[in-house]
């Protein structure tokens, strides 16, 4: 290290450190303390160190919503994996000069606001939307009767929206892992007699596990806490845990309970992260 860079680096680390403490850790601690409080009036909250909020959060009603959120997030992750893996493979094995363009196409949606993308999806899925228009046109072509499908405001619409929003988070880590994969391993497998599918299952997939794990986590964690997509695309029965939390802070004005629910969600997320660190450690121990 060159003389002088050490102190400079230390100073450079202080600013983000202060930022993190002031705008992340401190508010988080505040919410954590709030979760042990008791609602007194419209805005007044007494910190009485009670576990009541957490006990209330364990009510079957809320646990049910949490379970459903977990289910929707898991389904989103699986669909993202099933679609993202062929996409990532396609990009990796595409001619090198096509790769930047294909990657750009994957990243492109990021450049558009989430709200706009979600509204666009409403236009696609609604009763007089593009999906129904296409299906109607197709059935007219074959002379079949057609009843427009009600796609919007369903759990399916929520999952479709979540998959659409989160797919790049799956494709990019998968691409990174597959790109690093030694091409001669694939050639060796083919040389030894394995067909394309066999090479995928026995060589590429096992070696892509780190990418699959990080991609799944990158999709699962934000999908679990997603708020906007179920709010705009979901029906009355497709609310997820984040929508419930939002309602505690806003319409119900019950900040302590909202805080408790928030932390419950966070603990579940920590659980998912712990599972990941286990799966990462295993190959080294082998």
């Amino acid at each position: 290290m060159k003389p002088g860079t050490g102190p400079l680096l230390r100073v450079a680390g202080v600013v983000p450190g202060l930022w993190l403490a002031g705008f992340f850790l401190l508010p988080l601690a505040f919410v954590w303390i709030l979760s042990f409080g008791e609602k007194q009036g419209l805005v007044a909250v007494d910190i009485v160190w009670t576990a009541d909020n957490y006990l209330r959060a364990l009510d079957p009603l809320y646990l049910g919503i949490l379970a459903k959120s977990l289910w929707i997030a898991a389904l989103t992750t699986v669909i993202c994996l099933a679609t993202g893996l062929p996409v990532a493979l396609g990009i990796v094995f595409a001619p090198p000069r096509w790769r930047p363009l294909l990657l750009l196409l994957v990243i492109l949606p990021f450049w558009t606001n989430l709200l706009i993308r979600t509204y666009a999806l409403i236009a696609v899925l609604r009763t007089r939307g593009h999906v129904n228009a296409t299906l109607g046109w197709a059935s007219e072509l074959f002379g079949l009767p057609f009843e427009p499908l009600s796609l919007l405001y369903t759990n399916t619409a929520v999952v479709a929206g979540l998959v659409y929003v989160h797919l790049p988070f799956m494709v990019l880590p998968l691409y990174a892992t597959l790109h690093r994969l030694d091409r001669s391993l694939v050639e060796a497998a083919a040389d030894l007699g394995a067909g394309h599918l066999r090479v995928c299952i026995t060589i590429i997939l096992p070696l892509a596990v780190p990418g699959i794990v990080s991609g799944s986590l990158l999709v699962f964690v934000p999908a679990l806490g997603s708020y906007l997509t179920p709010d705009l695309l979901g029906g009355p029965d497709s609310q997820m845990i984040a929508n419930v939390i939002e309602r505690q802070f806003k319409s119900a004005n019950d900040w302590p309970f909202g805080s408790a629910l928030s932390f419950l969600l966070m603990y579940v997320t920590f659980g998912a992260l712990a599972l990941r660190s286990l799966s990462v450690r295993r190959p080294a121990a082998r």
Partner: peptide
């Protein structure tokens, strides 16, 4: 390549890192 009666020893050996030696040879 997978149906030709030839086999190759690669410069980098290209051993499958996730398989034991026996599984590599039996692959």
């Amino acid at each position: 390549a997978n149906r030709r009666p030839v086999n190759m020893v690669f410069q980098s050996y290209a051993l499958f890192p996730h398989m034991s030696v026996r599984s590599n040879v039996a692959y």
